[in-house]
Amino acid sequence: MSNVETFAGQVVTDIAAAFSGVMTNIGHKLGLYKAMAGEGWISSQQLAAKTYTDERYVREWLNNQAAGGYVAYDVETRRYNLPDEHVPVLADDDSPLFLVPALEVASSLWMDEGRVIEVFRTGEGIPWSDHHHRLFCGSESLFRPGYKAHLASGWIAALDGVAEKLAAGGKVADVGCGHGASTLVMAEAFPNSTIVGFDSHESSIATARQRAADAKSQGCVRFELASAKGYGEQGFDLICFMDCLHDMGDPVGAARHARQALKDDGTLLLVEPAAGDGVEQNLNPVSRLYYAASTAVCTPCSKSQDVGLALGAQAGEARLSEVLREAGFRSVRRAAETPFNLILEARK
């Protein structure tokens, strides 16, 4: 096989994955994966009956899933099986490895393709608020399980003395909170603390308030419409930037504002996409995903704002630490990490 044919095979694999991503999202929304989880070998007729769907469509969907290795197929019984090790990724909404919501984000990129093409030509930006709404809901659903699994018990616990302060009753700002997934996780974990979510996107703040009402949050949690350099409150024990600093036009200014809003012994928690410091360290599937999102969403978001530094979603620890030190933080260290996240702690 020639090099051209080998590469064509690689592209066919990518195109098949793009087509099949729609099938994966359909499987999630119709509850097909959940219906298969833990059931062992199941026929298309049984799955259709369990999910109140049409058998012929279910059978074709199952064959797509089998061709991609998402489900197993037994040729003798013509039955299908969702392996147990696939359940956390495809069927468990609370798993930190639940990845299906990333397809909602991917769909928003297709919806906004024309705008992205235009900013390539003009060098301008695209405000977060101008993207398709599937980006907002997809981001919330994608990040929430990781926050539930790691934010309080892993990341905050790794910060010097912060968990103890919040357990006793501290004050926290969640800057760029979006729909409030991380804010509500902290409110549940630290009910004695005051947790304030700030975001400049009005509809996201409205959604966050509704999420808090739906969750019947027990702690003192509230959401305010404010930019990363526009909130006026002071005296925070902890200020968080959850997967958002690289989206900001002036991340140095945002971090400097946070430093001024912290108590003297306060802490900044920065959660960013996992990345090495050089492109050569990021030539892998996870970074490929992040670079795509950064091209279509993160970089245009930053370039739509004042300064427009455009850090990108793969800035890496060295560059992020440089930003925090330029903002005036004297101590910056890596506190934790996951396959998808880099977690930095900054102190005055």
Rank of each mutant, 00 (worst) to 15 (best):
A149S: 14
W128I: 14
G178Q: 06
P101W: 02
L82V: 05
Y147I: 02
I156E: 08
E76R: 11
V172I: 15
D74C: 09
D94E: 12
G161D: 15
H179Q: 15
T77L: 04
P145E: 02
S141Y: 09
G123R: 05
T183R: 04
V185M: 03
F98H: 03
V162M: 11
L159N: 14
G169L: 00
A168G: 15
A158G: 10
V185P: 03
G123Q: 06
V172E: 12
V75K: 14
L109T: 11
D94Q: 08
D84S: 15
L82N: 01
P145K: 03
L166F: 08
V100K: 02
H131C: 09
D160T: 14
A168K: 11
A187P: 00
H86V: 02
V87F: 10
M111G: 07
H132G: 07
D112C: 13
E113R: 15
E164S: 14
D74T: 07
V71F: 03
E140P: 00
G180T: 01
F190K: 01
H131R: 13
S108M: 05
D174F: 01
D160M: 05
H179P: 05
S139G: 13
V116Y: 09
Y147Q: 10
V105T: 12
R134M: 11
D94H: 06
A167G: 10
E113L: 13
H131A: 08
W128Y: 14
R79T: 15
W128R: 12
Y73A: 13
A173F: 03
A91I: 01
W128C: 09
S182I: 04
H131D: 08
R115L: 12
Y147N: 11
A102L: 12
G180D: 02
R78L: 12
V119T: 08
L166N: 13
P83N: 09
E118F: 04
A152T: 06
F120L: 14
A72N: 12
I126Y: 07
Y80P: 02
R121F: 01
A72E: 15
G170E: 08
A102Q: 05
R78S: 13
I117P: 00
P96M: 07
G123E: 01
V116R: 12
G114P: 08
Y70D: 15
K171L: 07
V75E: 14
G170Q: 11
K148H: 04
V116Q: 15
W155G: 08
F143S: 07
N64Y: 08
G125K: 04
T183L: 03
L97I: 05
A149H: 10
G114S: 15
V175L: 11
L109N: 10
F120Y: 10
F136I: 04
K165L: 13
T183V: 02
L97N: 13
A163I: 01
S153P: 00
L135I: 09
T183A: 03
V185N: 01
I117M: 10
F120Q: 13
A173K: 06
V105W: 03
G69L: 11
A173S: 09
L109K: 07
A91L: 03
R121G: 07
Y147G: 09
D92G: 03
P88S: 11
E124M: 04
V87T: 06
P101D: 01
T77P: 02
R121N: 05
